[in-house]
Amino acid sequence: MIIEDMTIQKNECIALNTFEMVISGEEIPLQIQSGQFVHIQIGDGKLNMLRRPISVADINRISKTITLIYHVTGDGTKWLSTLTEGTMVNVLGPLGNGFEIKHAEGNHILIVGGGVGVPPLYHLTKQLVRHHQVTVVLGFATHEAIFYESAFQQLAETYVATNDGTYGYHGVVTDVINQLDQPFQYYYACGPSPMLQAVQRQMTDTHGQLSFEERMGCGVGACFACVCEAKNDKGYVKICQDGPVLQANEVIL
């Protein structure tokens, strides 16, 4: 965990209110793993007290860059979206526990992403396809919100669903998984809590990992803002510190 000023190499709108930002640095791009996140300071820190947690979508250790995909939802991310190439951002990271890839059992793995939960699955999928058969199911609100469809398609069999039916399958990711009717040996999912809950219930007989989104304070486990009820001795997990990736059967949704 370090703080470093990283340089924006690219910051572009790639879908409805969705930006792809590539930033370069010295240490964080070398240390960060799939599923971990960085905590970005907004402005000079005098008006915005809280950093914004954004998970890493892609990692390039040679060019020492990381790719972040974020949704503009408020003042902080709006400010971030206005930054141009060459600007520095103050980054705390890498934070949290990422995906455990060695635990991926069996051959056929299912990847499920919803909206802004899709990004961390991209670098994960890149790694998984080296040794496994992978099927990707992505859900978005509407056609304009879709991103990275072709990027995923280049890696694995990919299905897209939209809530409003403006593209792909009309419905939610669990409908698509039902229709696929395939025996998956393991799964990874990231997205809003209702989606994770639906996937967790659908895949009760299959082991998997879930990556969570939650409003965070410190991002390092000190403030107890982002807790989630869990089946462990303490009765809870801190999403920022114990997660954001957790074993699917560990959390109570």
Binding site: L50, R215, F224, A225, V227, C228, G235
Partner: peptide
């Protein structure tokens, strides 16, 4: 166990918490 989440919200030059 504390309160339900969300437990924090940013405000101008500050934040609200209800841990």
């Amino acid at each position: 166990f504390g309160n339900q989440t969300p437990r924090v919200a940013e405000t101008s030059s500050g934040m609200l918490n209800a841990i």
